[in-house]
Nucleic acid binder design. Sequence first.
DNA 1: CGCCGATCTGGACTTTGTCTAATATTCGGA
DNA 2: TCCGAATATTAGACAAAGTCCAGATCGGCG
Lengths: 136, 136
Amino acid sequence: MHYTRDNMAGLLRSHDINPTHQRIEIAYALFSRQEHLSADQVMAIVNTRHSETSKATVYNTLKLFLEKGLVREVIVDPSKVFFDPNTSPHHHLYEVDSGKLSDIDAEHVVISGLPPLPAGMVTEGIDLIVRVRRTS
Amino acid sequence: MHYTRDNMAGLLRSHDINPTHQRIEIAYALFSRQEHLSADQVMAIVNTRHSETSKATVYNTLKLFLEKGLVREVIVDPSKVFFDPNTSPHHHLYEVDSGKLSDIDAEHVVISGLPPLPAGMVTEGIDLIVRVRRTS
DNA sequence: CGCCGATCTGGACTTTGTCTAATATTCGGA
DNA sequence: TCCGAATATTAGACAAAGTCCAGATCGGCG
Ligand SMILES: [Mn+2]
Ligand SMILES: [Mn+2]
Ligand SMILES: [Zn+2]
Ligand SMILES: [Zn+2]
């Protein structure tokens, strides 16, 4: 599957999001790259050409995408949140020094032996983060 | 093992940390409670009685404890870091709504099928976070 | 064209955390 | 015990991420 600006409107509609110019640009930034981006990075990307999208809109839009399940949040760096266009179950490899974040396919990873959940609780997700460092 | 202010100095020295009044208070806040605390919470606790420890000292001290391996950092909430006096290998259960964070013993948890690390990389830690929500 | 709800915006504000330069404390040695 | 150097603490300025709001703008429809 190949992402273009032109198929962003359909993607947004399929997630019950009204497609606007700004939302299309922001979605395109994430989906065309298939990378983990911070709000700051998204803002820099969408404002490279000319369109001028405000900070408030970038944050509002990313939050909207999150609520609608179009993207997922990755909390791995204490100073900023990353947004992930890959919403299929997967884990993350985090290079502590460089801040580089990459995906680990969940398909072959098995997590067993977790204790039963407290009553009245339901799992929203299991985040597995492998923190690595360059051999010094 | 039972933690008192009086045995904090020894604990600090055993981790190569010069025990000072402020450091003892901060360590005592964490170890006597055995809870995950944010810097803000630590500051509130140590300043409840009278001692008046500054914000800079709270942050400096928590970072020092981290470097010396006396506490560990838990990154689970996008808005603040939690400090964990439990440095033995364990995982976390995070209640998304309430923000409550609790330990999952690592002893019976098995994680298998992780892909090999990129060359020249060494694992610094594996963080497993089970995000749960109250059944609605 | 003109209306109206939805969206976008600048900028003030909040929160978490960092930095700095001045002050205070600690601690080993005389 | 006293002293000086090294170490630690501090107030407050600063920075960065993120939130909020009231007013401006957009865009689809009659
Ligand atoms: Mn989806
Ligand atoms: Mn230890
Ligand atoms: Zn990912
Ligand atoms: Zn813990």
